[in-house]
Design a protein around this nucleic acid. Structure first.
Lengths: 217, 217, 217, 217
DNA sequence: ACCTAATCGAGACGGTACGTCTGGTCTTCCG
DNA sequence: CGGAAGACCAGACGTACCGTCTCGATTAGGT
């Protein structure tokens, strides 16, 4: 998806913007984020240690803390880049587009590093408003953009009516997004059951049609 | 809800069932679970400490570990009882029943102790199959039972067609449950926005009808 | 010297005096102090690390900090026991007694662990009154006792006049003690030159007689 | 005393002697040494930090390390100049001269920066021969010169016999010096008691006469 | 008027030790 | 024997300095 407006995982915006002393090593940034993803996949959230990441990245702990104030922020950035691979296809129909993006999302949630990190991050974000904001900016909003895009495509095709006003549109996007993201996450991470093409089809039907088996109302 | 098959937060079934020496203090169990809930509400998941719980409950750490093998299991039990208050009403229509149960669930998620614990537990459960199983038994399954109940009620009223076969029914219950639970959790705990009656109405509409604005297909 | 009133290097008096919980391991105390002395001798004051001591003693850092609040206090106790070996002989004359005790003291200062620790402790004590107090109780006072003892022996022999009053006696003991201890320390640790029997003889002469070469006054 | 043979605290002689590039700032040297003394007085040896000194002196750490290889050497130079104020008076008698110089030395040891630095330096010197040499050159030898001077004055007055040979003289100077320096340091820095005129008088008596109270021998 | 070279400030870098905290286990005594 | 108390080992935490390095910007002397 959108490599349009994307920095390569910018660490800490509070860094001095202009160069007085020695500039920060860009290689260190990359090594740290890679190490974080690897460690997440191997050891999971609980096994992830700042010291461990630093060692594996060949970097001093100080360097790590200079850029990310804590494990939470670090993992947000490390995981965020994974979400960049989500893309909105244009397959000619709303149903096909939805099924495609749900499939992509499910594929992402199947990766061990995502699985290890996502719910843990959400849990931490529950208590820390700054972290929630960061999660929103780096993870949630890019996803929500997909919904916006898919919706616009469907409107252009004539499958959906054009927006009446911006506020309603926004609310509709929100509700659709929470439904898609929440349901897939709950299915995979809480119920622990796989997301198969069949399941995707049935879920899309739920979104697009009345409840299956609903008697004529 | 179902006080049918429910122990009053039984700690560890592996305990010696019969009294040889001094019997375990039931008061200790209650004090521990209360202390856990209080500490969760005050300090959140991260701030919850076994030592802290023990102190607050006026109990030795040993006693605590004798009953629950770790923080995770303890919190499952402490939080599970909160889910007992969920009940399936029979308000005469499927929509009304759904809206009622979603509202109850949202109310539960608004409590600080639930908020602090739920996602964290799910995150831990991602790695630990035994924990996931326990979560399922004590938290998820009781909720899923509500869906089953509501569905049966609607079938009796004639709003839904009767089940064709058990397998399909089960799958349909699963998908509905994941959608309701996942969406409400995502809305409240990840997006961090409130679940108002209006939102509930719109979400229920999404479940019961085609996408709003969907052009005639 | 006086094993009369001596605890085997009691760590921290602030410990709860009698046993409610598990008692502190006496073996750990011994292992820690031994490890401290060994590490001092090998690595010196600067190379001595709490973590290193703990590891070498086969003890957790927590155990170490439970007993001694910091490196300073730990080393005081570790070194103090070395000073227990100082004894006041009774060799029949004041000169012989002085020479013997100076020789013993010099021998003590020649040991690497003493050398590494003593001045560093004194330096730290300069800033920390509690540490200075502890140094005084565990290291200085036992030494000063030797002076008191030697003086009493000389008075019994008739080499010295009996005390006129306690205050004057105390002052005289102080000045003699500071002179002996300070001079030997300065010779060995600052000037870095050896304390030979010849030097001891000359120093004792300085104490007992007018300056060598002093013209008749 | 001797501003005779004194560089104004020359930092590091290993600097390239002749100017090709930009010359070193003399102001920086002064600022660094001043900052060092101030920080010593305020924070003590343990609180003294290279980074702190650099900041306080308005200088980069690099500049500091270009001149002094470590904290130890820096403090030697910073403190050494304080010892330049020691002077040998000629008050007409050996006793008066000794009492004067002991008083001066005690005054010096009463200053917080000296107190913080001296024993710490000696302690470090115990392990580092190069440092000990530097201490000797910049701090100890100038003091020892005072003893030599006072001795010569007394010989000229006829209070002391002339030297028989150089070696013996040197040894006698050494022992007197270690005694005076060591005793005063021990009294003030270890015992932590003040050096009053009365104490100086008694100490000088000890140096010049047999032990007080010594029965006729 | 240019070079050349060492200096300056700032600050990031890899390390290491710090002292604290928590997790689980164990050992003791009391009821 | 159960329970309270608390010591035990293990190890991660986030901070503070260490001494080195890499910058861009001065600031001289030598041509």
């Amino acid at each position: 998806m959108a490599p349009t407006t994307q920095q390569p995982a910018a660490p800490d915006q509070t860094a001095p913007p202009r160069g007085k002393g020695r500039p920060r090593s860009a290689a260190a940034d990359r090594a740290i984020l890679d190490a974080t993803r690897e460690a997440l996949a191997e050891l999971g959230w609980g096994g992830l240690t700042m010291g461990h990441v630093a060692t594996r990245a060949g970097v001093a702990k100080t360097t790590l803390y200079r850029r990310w104030p804590s494990k939470n922020e670090l993992v947000v950035d490390a995981v965020a880049s994974l979400f960049d691979e989500l893309e909105m296809a244009d397959l000619g129909s709303l149903r096909a587009d939805i099924e495609a993006v749900v499939g992509q999302f499910a594929g992402l949630l199947a990766r061990p590093e995502t699985q290890a990190a996502l719910l843990a991050l959400f849990a931490e974000g529950t208590r820390d408003p700054l972290l929630r904001r960061r999660i929103r900016e780096r993870i949630v909003d890019p996803q929500k953009h997909l919904v916006r895009l898919g919706r616009a495509q469907a409107q252009q095709r004539g499958e959906l009516r054009p927006d009446r006003d911006a506020a309603t549109a926004c609310e509709e996007i929100d509700i659709i997004f929470d439904t898609i993201a929440g349901t897939v996450e709950h299915r995979m991470l809480v119920s622990g059951e796989p997301v198969t093409p069949e399941w995707i089809h049935r879920f899309t039907t739920l979104l697009l049609s009345p409840l299956p088996g609903l008697a004529e109302q």
